[in-house]
Design a binder for these strands. Structure first.
Length: 615
RNA sequence: GCCGACAUAGCUCAGUGGCUAGAGCGGCUGUUUUGUAAACAGCGGGUCGUGGGUUCGAAUCCCUCUGUCGGCUCCA
């Protein structure tokens, strides 16, 4: 049933791409068509319009033309042609991109770029059987090379909307001509389309860049540069609370904090092998005193290996675990930067454990348990991908070690009751890894924590420990970050919570609103603040000359968990009736509490990192 | 980096070749002393992102640079 529905939706979206091409061909007869696949919520078509640039202002025109074709309810007629005939068709129709695809099909039996590259290199491609017949779909007077499937006629495509246009290289390769990609969404019913648009609207409201400004969390400055966000006091609280949590989880498990400088001689990365691989992503630093070439660190592991290497190590000392939450610098392409999700100064809650081969499982087990605890507390579901090697020889390290390690990853994952799936061929060349994906409140999945085994770097740096037989052995290195990048995590988390942070993370946990500006009121507010601060709470007093209603409103807008109005009544009774932010309140009734009880309860919530109020 | 869109006050935005560039919010000052989502009045605040060009005249048209946003992974 579900499968049928999915297939039907897929055919609808495919047909929409076809109809869009058909409509655009009517509007611009000279267009050259690339590919028009189905994507997550819709479809796109890559089109070469020569010198004509289309923009979203053209969408109504294209949509209207599509609607006409849909209203005509033209049947989709499928036909097949021998490939040689199809090639003649592409030539006659002046469709060079289709021609290229057909030639590839004829030669290699595929149009997938990856497989084509493989073929060129003489490696056997996956789908190598030669294609003899190709499929066409025709509606009205428009015929397109298309594998399908399509719906029966143009009237059966459900609801759609064109969303955006962008440049896209033909086949994703930079030196190929750039085409215009018109992207649309399509759903079976109008209702579903509207729901999806509402979800996008909600996502827009939660956009961390917008909330970052509204809630005063971070700013960017042209003078500092793009991809280099600056955190305000409020945003810094978020960072520090997250980092404290991550550090706590690891210190509890025997990790020791270390500290390294943010620059190093280039030689470090020449030795680690990163220079060759990531050379163009590094920020270079020039010494004016010496002739040394320095770089900003793009990762921490090579530095950490040098701490391990500073002493002879015994098998009894292992695992040796270092943790450091520190910033790395990567010179990302400017077009890829944005908000907090892609930055050039990336703070990682990084850790490296050096262990024996037989300790891998216990280490992974412990790291996964930490990740699970962290994401449970945060309130996000985790799904885990185990990335293994495949049969190719692109991997370094002993084959038996790989097998044992992969097995240990799986056992540890199962022991932690984590939902997981396995993928071969996704491992890093230096070892298998575990990637953790967290899903947010809008159902979007984000890659967050990772655990990576590394069989190569210890060898490159000649790391060793002495085993029971007094022989030198190479340790295995385990890289792990629970949050991943603090900046990227924050971008996800801000959108997940829509800025309604739980008490333990809230930049401002309690706001006191004064009823008047009398000395007695202010003195009282100050006394409460002192008491709260002694309990480690973050309190702000709003003593502005504004109505209470206005100040309540401001507190609501800033999403403060607890707001308390203070005036004569409170001074007299020594009791508060806190206003509790709706998403954390467990009942509609707010009871009166003594000040001490109120503050202690909030402090207790913060310490326990609970998500709901206990008031 | 490439394609496209955008850039006007701290914020959100109006102003599409013609007088001194506007509004709301925020800020400041005064009045008010406020009881659970917006008191009232006044005052500030702009090199219209940068540099150049066209024009009698440019926020407005053209070019450049910088920045922001959507894409550049999805393969007949």
């Amino acid at each position: 049933m579900e499968g049928n529905k999915d297939q039907q939706l897929h055919a609808m979206r495919h047909s929409l791409a076809h109809i869009m091409a058909s409509a655009m061909k009517r509007l611009w007869p000279e267009i050259k068509l690339g590919v028009g696949p189905v994507v997550e919520h819709g479809f796109y078509y890559d089109i070469d319009l020569g010198d004509t640039a289309i923009s979203d202002a053209d969408f109504p025109k294209i949509e209207a033309e599509m609607q006409k074709i849909i209203a005509e309810n033209q049947p989709f007629e499928q036909s097949t042609k021998p490939i040689a005939e199809a090639i003649e068709w592409a030539k006659a129709e002046n469709q060079p991109y289709k021609l290229e695809l057909l030639h590839d099909l004829q030669r290699a039996g595929t149009t997938v770029a990856k497989d084509l590259d493989a073929e060129e290199l003489g490696i056997e491609a996956k789908a190598a059987s030669k294609v003899e017949q190709v499929s066409f779909y025709k509606n009205g007077d428009f015929t397109d090379l298309c594998r399908g499937p399509h719906v029966v006629s143009t009237g059966k495509v459900g609801a759609f909307k064109l969303m955006r246009v962008s440049g896209a290289y033909w086949r994703g390769k930079e030196n190929n001509p750039q085409m215009q990609r018109v992207y649309g969404i399509g759903f079976a019913t109008d209702k579903e389309l509207r729901q999806h648009l509402a979800m996008l609207e909600e996502a827009k409201k939660r956009d961390h860049r917008k909330l970052g400004q509204e809630l005063d969390l971070f700013v960017v400055s042209d003078l500092v540069g793009s991809g280099l966000p600056l955190f305000t006091p409020r945003g810094t609280v978020l960072r520090e609370e997250l980092i404290r949590f991550s550090n706590e989880l690891r210190e509890r498990n025997g990790f020791q904090k270390v500290f390294i400088p943010h620059i190093t001689k280039q030689a470090l990365y020449e030795k680690s092998g990163h220079w060759a691989k990531f050379g163009d992503e590094l920020f270079l630093v020039k010494s004016q005193e010496t002739s040394d070439s320095f770089v900003m660190k793009p990762m921490n592991c090579p530095h950490h290996t040098q701490i391990f290497a500073s002493q002879p190590r015994s098998y009894r000392d292992l695992p040796i675990r270092y943790l450091e939450t520190t910033t790395v610098y990567r010179d990302e392409k400017t077009g890829e930067l944005g908000g907090l999700s892609r930055v050039r100064a990336i703070t990682q809650d990084d850790s490296h454990a050096f262990c024996r081969k037989d300790q891998i499982e216990q280490e992974i087990n412990m790291l996964l348990a930490s990740a699970r605890e962290l994401y449970e507390t945060i309130g996000m579901n985790l799904r885990v991908r185990l990335s293994y090697r495949d049969e190719s020889d692109a991997y370094l390290g002993d084959q038996a070690l790989w097998e044992s390690a992969q097995n240990q990853l799986k056992v540890a994952t199962e022991a932690n009751n984590l939902e997981y799936f396995e993928e071969t061929g996704e491992a890093a060349f230096y070892g298998p890894k575990i990637d953790m994906m967290a899903s947010d409140a809008l159902g979007r999945e984000h890659q967050v924590a990772t655990v990576q085994l590394d069989f190569v770097m210890p060898e490159r740096f000649g790391l060793a420990y002495t085993d029971e037989q007094s022989e030198a052995q190479t340790p295995v290195m385990i890289h792990c970050a629970l949050l991943g990048s603090v900046e990227r995590f924050l971008s996800v988390y801000i959108e997940h919570t829509a800025g309604k942070f739980p008490v333990w993370m809230a930049p401002e946990q309690i706001r006191l609103i004064t009823v008047n500006q009398e000395d007695a009121t202010l003195t009282f507010a100050q006394k409460v603040t002192n008491q709260a601060q002694a309990l480690g709470l973050r309190v702000v007093t709003d003593n502005n000359n504004e109505s209470v209603g206005k100040k309540i409103r401001n507190s609501e807008i800033m999403k403060v968990p607890y707001t308390v109005v203070v005036g004569e009544k409170e001074i007299e009774t020594g009791e508060f009736v806190p206003r509790i932010r709706k998403d954390i309140a467990v009942s509609d009734r707010t009871e009166s509490r003594t000040i001490e009880e109120f503050l202690k309860t909030v402090a207790h919530e913060a310490k326990g990192r609970v998500s709901k109020s206990s008031l």
